[in-house]
Design a protein around this nucleic acid. Structure first.
Length: 760
DNA sequence: AGGCCCTTAAACAAAG
DNA sequence: GCTTTGTTTAAGGGCC
C-alpha cells in the first residue's frame, strides 16, 4: 500500500506544484479530456464544435420528436418518462455524440421539458414567421425604393430634356436645393447626385435590414443558448442573403473588409471557428462599428472614398483602434474573457516575435481571414503580413470581426460549459460546480464572490468561519460543502460544538442540509480538495478534515513526500482561506499534531528537519474501533469505497450504523443508499435521507455500461484506492489524480484487511 | 460514565 | 532577544 500511495504521489506531483490552480485545472482537464479525445478523433474539430454538433443533433431529434408529439404520435405518460428508462440513454447520449432519436429524446426529457420545448418551439416558429414577414416587408420597401430609383433616374434624364424638370421636382420636392443643383449640372453629375440620394436611402434600408437580421440572429442565438434552436438555421449569411440580394451583401462586406467578399469573409471565419458561428453581431453590434461601417459604406458607396480627406481617414482609423482598445478593455476585459483575448488574434503581434511559428501562418499560407496567400517561408509570410495586412482600416475591421468571433465563441463556450456542469450535476457526476456555475470561464469571480462572502464576516471572532460561512456555502456551493460536511463528524465535531452552543447554530443546519443532498457523500480528502480547492482556497470555510489528515495529505502530496514545517504551513495557507488567519492557533495545532502523532516522523535533513509520514503508524493509529466492528460493516465500508473517510469517521459510521446496516441489508449494490444510511445515522432525518438516496442512488443514471459493474465503488464514493485500482469512475476521469493520496490510513487498512470481493 | 478523538491553548526548550 | 521549531500538558467538546 505504500507503493500505491507513493506511485500516486509521484503521478500527481506535477499538478501539485501549482497548488490550487493546478487542482482546478486538473478537474477542468478531466472534463475537457472527453472533449479532447473527441477532438483527436475528429482531427481539427474542436470540443466546442463537437458540443455544438451534439447539441444540434439532440435538438434536431428533439424537434423531430416534438413534431411527432405535436401530431399526436406520442403521448408519453409523464411518470414513465421520468423513471428508469431514462437512465441509460442519458449516459449513452453523454458518452457518445451520436444522433439521438426522438425516442431517446423522449426518454431523456421529462414531459415538462418536452412540453416546454414544444411551446418554445412554437414560439420560435411564430417569431421566425414574424421576422420573415418583417424581412419581406423591408425587402419590399427596398424593391419599391429601387423602382423609385429607376424611375427617378429616368425622370432625371428626362428632365434634362425638358426645362421644367417636373418629374424630379414632383418626386423629390424636399430636396429642392439639390434639384436646382441637378438642373444646373451635367447629366453625369446629376445622376451621381441622384444616386447618392437614392443610395443613401437604400443604405438606410440595408442598414435596417441588417439590424433586423442581427436582432433576429441575436434572438435566435439566445434561444440557441437555451438549447431550443439548432445552430444551422441561424447561419447569418443565409438569413442575410434572404433579406438582401447578394450584391448588396457583397458590397456591404466589401466595404468592411475591403477586399474579400462577405461570403468569403464569413466562410473564412466559419472555417476558422469550425462552424456556422453567429456572426450577426459582428458588423454592427457595437456602436462604433455600426457608425464606422455606415460611414465607410457611405463614403464608398458614394464614390467618395478616394476623396475622403486623409485626416478623416486617420480619424476613422483612430476611432477604429479606439474602439478596439475599448473593446478589449471593456467587452473582452471581463475577467473571463481577458485571458482568451490575450492569446487571441490581437496578441498575434506578440507571436510575431517568436521565430519559427506564427498563429497566422500555417501550411504555407497566410491564415489571415480571407487571405490564404501562399508564403513559402516565414520571412515571406512576415513580409506578406506587413504588406497586405498592415495597420489599416481593413485589417482593423477584420480584426474586429475576429474579435467578435472569439467573443461569441467564448460566450458559447461558457454557456455550453454551464450546461454541461448542470447536466453533470443533475446526473450526480460531481462536477466542480462552484466554478462554472458562478461564472462562465474564469475562476476569479467565484473567488471574488467567495471572498466577498468571507469578507462579510468580522475578523477576530473565535470561530467565525465555521459558524458564519456555513449557512451560505452548502446551498451556494452545493457539492463542495455537501461532500465536505459529510465528513463532519470527526473533524467538525469541535466546530459543531460551537454551533450547538448557538440556539440557531448553523452547524446542525449545515449538517442536515448536507445530509439531504449528500449524493457525493463522504468523499475523501483528495477528492474533496480536488473538487473544491477553489472553494476552500477562497471561502473562509474550515476544511472538514483533521489536522493530521491534512498534514499527511500535504506531506504526501509533496514531490519527495516530505515537507518542512514551514512548507506545511504554506500548504495550509495556500489551500485554505480558513488557514490564512488565526495563524497562531492552527499553526500551533499543526505542530501539536506533528509531535503528537507517531505517524509523523521528523527527519533530520541537511537543510534542517523535514516531516514525513509513517504510513504504518498512521494506519496503526486507530484500528481498535474498526477492528471491533463486525466484518460486515467493514466489508461494506471497504467495498463501498469508504476508504477516504478518516478513521474516526469510519469508526463512527461503522459503529453508529451497525444496526441500521444490518437491518437494511447493505449488500444492496446501491452504495449511495448505504452510505446515506450510514451518514444519516445519528440524525433525525435518516429516513428521508435514505429515501432520497434510494431514489437517486439506487438507479444508476450516470453509469455507462463499462462503469456499471463498479457502480458500487464509483458512483457515490470513489475512494482514492478504488480510483487507483480500477480507474473506472467517471468521476475519476474527471477529477482524478491531483490529490492522489489516500487521505486516511484506514482506507487501506480496510482495503487490505477486507477484500471487496466479500461483498461481491 | 468513561474512553477516544480532535481541537485549542499554553508552557517550555532548543535551534537558528 | 526574537522567532521558529518541536514537545508536552491540559482542558473542553463530541461521539459512542
Amino acid at each position: 500500500m505504500m507503493v500505491e500511495s507513493a506511485s500516486e504521489t509521484t503521478r500527481t506531483t506535477p499538478s501539485n506544484q501549482n497548488g490550487v490552480s493546478s487542482l482546478s485545472s486538473h478537474s477542468d482537464g478531466g472534463g475537457g479530456r472527453e472533449g479532447g479525445s473527441n477532438g483527436d478523433t475528429n482531427g481539427e474539430i474542436s470540443p466546442v464544435d463537437l458540443l455544438h454538433l451534439q447539441q444540434q443533433q439532440a435538438l434536431q431529434a428533439a424537434r423531430q420528436f416534438l413534431l411527432q408529439q405535436a401530431s399526436g404520435l406520442n403521448s408519453p405518460s409523464s411518470n414513465e418518462v421520468k423513471q428508469s428508462p431514462v437512465q441509460v440513454p442519458v449516459s449513452m447520449a453523454m458518452l457518445t455524440p451520436q444522433m439521438i432519436s426522438p425516442q431517446q429524446m423522449q426518454q431523456i426529457l421529462s414531459p415538462a421539458q418536452l412540453q416546454a420545448l414544444l411551446q418554445q418551439q412554437q414560439a420560435i416558429m411564430l417569431q421566425q414567421e414574424y421576422y420573415k414577414k418583417q424581412q419581406e416587408q423591408l425587402h419590399l420597401q427596398l424593391l419599391t425604393q429601387q423602382q423609385q430609383q429607376q424611375a427617378g433616374k429616368q425622370a432625371a434624364k428626362e428632365s434634362l430634356h425638358s426645362p421644367g424638370v417636373p418629374g424630379l421636382r414632383g418626386r423629390k420636392r424636399s430636396n429642392t436645393a439639390e434639384d436646382l443643383e441637378a438642373r444646373r449640372c451635367s447629366p453625369y453629375w446629376l445622376e451621381w447626385v441622384w444616386q447618392q440620394q437614392i443610395g443613401n436611402k437604400q443604405l438606410a434600408f440595408q442598414q435596417q435590414l441588417i439590424q433586423m437580421q442581427q436582432l433576429q440572429q441575436q434572438h435566435i442565438l439566445n434561444l440557441q443558448r437555451q438549447g431550443l434552436v439548432s445552430l444551422q438555421p441561424t447561419n447569418p449569411m443565409q438569413s442575410l442573403q434572404q433579406a438582401m440580394c447578394p450584391g448588396d451583401l457583397q458590397q456591404l462586406w466589401k466595404e468592411v473588409s475591403g477586399v474579400q467578399s462577405a461570403e468569403e469573409a464569413l466562410k473564412q471565419q466559419q472555417q476558422q471557428t469550425g462552424e456556422g458561428l453567429d456572426l450577426s453581431t459582428n458588423s454592427t453590434s457595437s456602436s462604433f462599428p455600426k457608425a464606422n461601417t455606415h460611414s465607410t459604406l457611405h463614403s464608398l458607396h458614394n464614390g467618395q472614398s478616394n476623396h475622403t480627406p486623409k485626416r478623416d481617414r486617420y480619424r476613422d482609423r483612430a476611432r477604429l483602434f479606439e474602439w478596439i482598445s475599448s473593446f478589449s478593455k471593456a467587452d473582452l476585459g471581463d475577467e473571463h474573457l481577458m485571458p482568451y483575448t490575450k492569446g487571441g488574434p490581437l496578441s498575434s503581434s506578440h507571436h510575431e516575435e517568436h521565430a519559427g511559428s506564427h498563429p497566422l501562418y500555417g501550411h504555407g499560407e497566410c491564415k489571415w481571414p480571407g487571405c490564404e496567400a501562399l508564403c513559402d517561408d516565414m520571412g515571406q509570410f512576415i513580409k506578406h503580413l506587413n504588406n497586405e495586412h498592415a495597420l489599416d482600416d481593413r485589417s482593423t475591421a477584420q480584426c474586429r470581426v475576429q474579435m467578435q468571433v472569439v467573443q461569441q465563441l467564448e460566450i458559447q463556450l461558457s454557456k455550453e460549459s454551464e450546461r454541461l456542469q448542470a447536466m453533470m450535476t443533475h446526473l450526480h457526476m460531481r462536477p466542480s460546480e462552484p466554478k462554472p456555475f458562478n461564472q462562465p470561464l474564469n475562476l476569479a469571480s467565484s473567488g471574488s464572490l467567495l471572498k466577498r462572502e468571507s469578507e462579510a464576516y468580522p475578523e477576530g471572532l473565535p470561530h467565525p468561519p465555521t459558524s458564519a460561512a456555513a449557512p451560505i456555502t452548502p446551498v451556494r456551493q452545493g457539492p463542495s460543502v455537501i461532500s465536505s460536511s459529510s465528513l463532519h463528524s470527526h473533524s467538525h465535531s469541535h466546530s459543531h460544538s460551537h454551533s450547538h452552543s448557538h440556539p440557531h447554530g448553523v452547524g446542525p443546519i449545515r449538517r442536515r442540509i448536507a445530509d439531504k443532498f449528500c449524493t457525493p457523500i463522504a468523499s475523501g480528502i483528495r477528492e474533496e480538495l480536488a473538487q473544491n480547492c477553489e472553494f476552500y482556497k477562497n471561502a473562509d470555510v474550515r476544511p472538514p478534515f483533521t489536522y493530521a489528515s491534512l498534514i499527511r495529505h500535504a506531506i504526501l502530496e509533496a514531490p519527495d513526500m516530505q515537507l518542512t514545517l514551514n512548507e506545511i504551513y504554506n500548504w495550509f495557507t495556500r489551500m485554505f482561506a480558513y488557514f490564512r488567519r488565526n495563524t497562531a492557533t492552527w499553526k500551533n495545532a499543526v505542530r501539536h499534531n506533528l509531535s503528537l502523532h507517531k505517524c509523523f516522523v521528523r527527519v533530520e535533513n541537511v537543510k534542517g528537519a523535514v516531516w514525513t509520514v509513517d504510513e504504518v503508524e498512521y494506519q496503526k493509529r486507530r484500528p481498535p474501533k474498526m477492528t471491533g466492528s463486525p466484518t460486515l460493516v467493514k466489508n461494506m465500508i471497504s467495498g463501498l469505497g469508504f476508504g477516504s473517510l478518516n478513521a474516526s469517521y469510519q469508526a463512527a459510521l461503522a459503529e453508529s450504523s451497525l444496526t441500521l446496516l444490518n437491518s437494511q441489508g447493505l449488500v444492496n449494490p446501491s452504495s449511495a443508499a448505504s452510505l446515506n444510511m450510514l451518514h444519516g445515522m445519528g440524525h433525525n432525518d435518516v429516513s428521508s435521507t435514505v429515501e432520497q438516496v434510494n431514489s437517486n442512488g439506487s438507479c444508476s443514471p450516470t453509469l455507462s455500461p463499462q462503469q456499471y459493474g463498479h457502480q458500487v465503488h464509483v458512483k457515490e464514493e470513489p475512494t482514492e484506492v478504488e480510483e487507483d485500482r480500477r480507474s473506472v469512475s467517471l468521476m475519476a476521469t474527471i477529477t482524478h489524480g491531483n490529490m492522489a493520496l489516500p487521505s486516511d490510513r484506514d482506507d487501506r487498512d480496510l482495503e487490505d484487511e477486507l477484500p471487496t470481493d466479500e461483498l461481491e
